[in-house]
Design a protein around this nucleic acid. Structure first.
Lengths: 338, 338
DNA sequence: ATGAAAGCGCTAACAC
DNA sequence: GTGTTAGCGCTTTCAT
């Protein structure tokens, strides 16, 4: 492909009448090499336009300095914040990130896993699809002692390292918040999913309602977005009696729902209180501002990456569950009643 | 590192009493190899748990099947949509994406460029920082004939391949839209930047205002986000006479500005019309819904990746400027006057 | 402090 | 249709 010959350490060695090994050591700043030699090598490499060949090095060292990331999608605020955090940590540690999206398809996720595996990533960070929370295609990584950190959407089994919120508790708090504002008839809007994220939120909601002796029901949507949020509002419009407080499993759907409720003449928060999840920036843009559960993506990403590097560097595979803080952010959408 | 010996093509060869080259060919489905042999190799490789070693192959082929992407940040809706589009195209073509963020710092961008270069990416997709639109650190790529596609924030010089909107025209259209709604005193809110994105939008704005004989001024903010958008609104509140139509260079700042205007008792669109840029989903969430200029990130990402693969596959380095469609999306924030 | 030599796993030119 | 051979560029013993 490339016309001009690449400069190798042999070229530098020849030029300087040294051996390749000396050059190799000098280039990595190995102090065993005479300081002057190191300087000469540095100069010469600069002069010749040398660049290290990562594969040759990888091939030799059996290490890629690359970590793989598999996420359901890239274009969500939460996930891209997570990635931003991971990228920061990775680049500080001299690692690259290779990123793939599963598009919520377990099949695509398996394919991504194979690619990552063949690319010999030194570690893997994964957020699972909503479709499958006990995939078996990551087994080969653990078999080869390639560490995996799951984040946000974690597998059902216990013997993994993961970073996530305590979704049960977070949902409990969110629901409790509605109850504290005087709501007795509660509705939870979510998707049917075995994933910890949705299942735990659902259970947290039910537990909080039960503990307070409230009437709770759950509305399952095919997906959680603006559209489906609006559909949910239309259904709520027809309910009788209507719920007094709604806890939606993500902010986008909550926002869609709220907008549509307003259009139906159902006022938030006067007629219905509503709270979302994720504390997406949109919460502060909608009117009224949307209460939500805050959960910092960038931190989650950084913690996942930090833990992964610990595992890689210390060859330490102890399973660990890292819980991210969540807190209820009260805004106008849930503030009036009391 | 890894305890168990990795299985190589030699192991398969030994097992099957074949040569490594035959195995290599068989594994890539080379039709010159006997069908039965291919099958046997496939079975055996499966049985032994063989996985291809990408470095060894890369080292040999001098090709990485990896493309590098450098973006200012990951956690913006527009950019993550672009990435999603690129990832789709890349993965269809059997390529991986390695992604780095410059955090709007030219220094970090240069570092990223070095990393990508050393990792021998087969091609590069870049959106520049707002800080520097004529970086020299990508020169080494072109010198080595590694194709680069710039997107969105492109360099000042002409001899590059890029994918972007015609920001001048888009801004002209947006401004003209305000004028058509009856605005005579116009304000543009942006950041000081030599980048095509902001400079061209600014010029488009000025040209449209001038062509219509309107009074135009520009407010430069230190950044374009919710906060600074609100600051802008505070400044607008003190202006006299007040502008009648505002064109903001991105939607987040536009939304922040609009919210703050409302808080100051300045009604949108009754007192002031406003239009943003990017058609971010938040446009439909704010109240009133925000007019904007639509510009599809996913398409831009896909087009950039498509063009890059063309350059890689056909060894074709003709410079090409691909213009993405933009259109003014009229929503309530600019609809009343006429 | 430096060098010689072997080998990481794969591919491709060239044989047969 | 299959095998032989050499080499991609680097790192790492082991010598000296």
């Amino acid at each position: 492909m490339n016309d001009e010959k690449e400069v190798t350490i042999y070229d530098i060695a020849r030029e300087l009448k040294l051996s390749a090994s000396t050059v190799s050591r000098a280039l990595k700043g190995n102090p065993i090499i005479n300081y002057k030699t190191r300087q000469k090598v540095a100069e010469c490499s600069e002069k010749l336009g040398y660049r290290t060949n990562a594969f040759a090095s990888n091939l030799r060292r059996k290490k890629t300095n690359t970590i793989g990331v598999i996420v359901p999608r890239l274009d969500s605020h939460f996930l891209s914040s997570c990635l931003a955090g991971m990228e920061e940590v990775a680049s500080t540690n001299g690692y690259n990130l290779i990123i793939a999206q599963s598009h919520e398809s377990s099949k695509k996720e398996a394919e991504n896993a194979v690619t990552m595996f063949n690319n010999r990533v030194d570690g893997l960070i994964v957020s699972l699809t909503a479709e499958n929370n006990q995939p078996d295609y990551f087994r080969r990584f653990t078999e080869k002692h390639v560490p995996i950190v799951y984040f946000d959407r974690i597998p059902a089994k216990e013997d993994v390292t993961c970073v996530c919120a305590n979704n049960f508790e977070a949902a409990y708090k969110a629901t409790h918040h509605l109850i504290a504002k005087g709501c007795r008839r509660l509705l939870h809007i979510t998707i049917p999913s075995a994933s910890n994220v949705y299942a735990d939120r659902c259970q947290g909601f039910e537990a909080a309602a039960k503990d307070a002796g409230c009437i709770a029901s759950t509305l399952f949507l095919p997906a959680l977005n603006m559209e489906t949020g609006r559909d949910a509002a239309n259904q709520i419009g027809k309910m009788s009696p209507r719920p007094e407080g709604i806890f939606v499993a993500n902010d986008i759907a909550a926002a869609g729902c709220m907008l549509q409720l307003e259009e139906l003449g159902i006022a938030v928060p006067n007629d219905i209180l509503i709270i979302g999840f994720n504390n997406d920036p949109i919460c502060m843009l909608v009117n009224p501002p949307l209460s939500s559960v805050s959960y910092c993506g960038r931190d989650a990403g950084m913690m996942a990456a930090d833990r992964l590097f610990e595992m890689i560097d210390n060859y330490d595979f102890a399973f660990q569950k890292i819980i991210i803080d969540t807190s209820v952010i009260e805004r106008e959408s849930s503030l009036i009643k009391q």
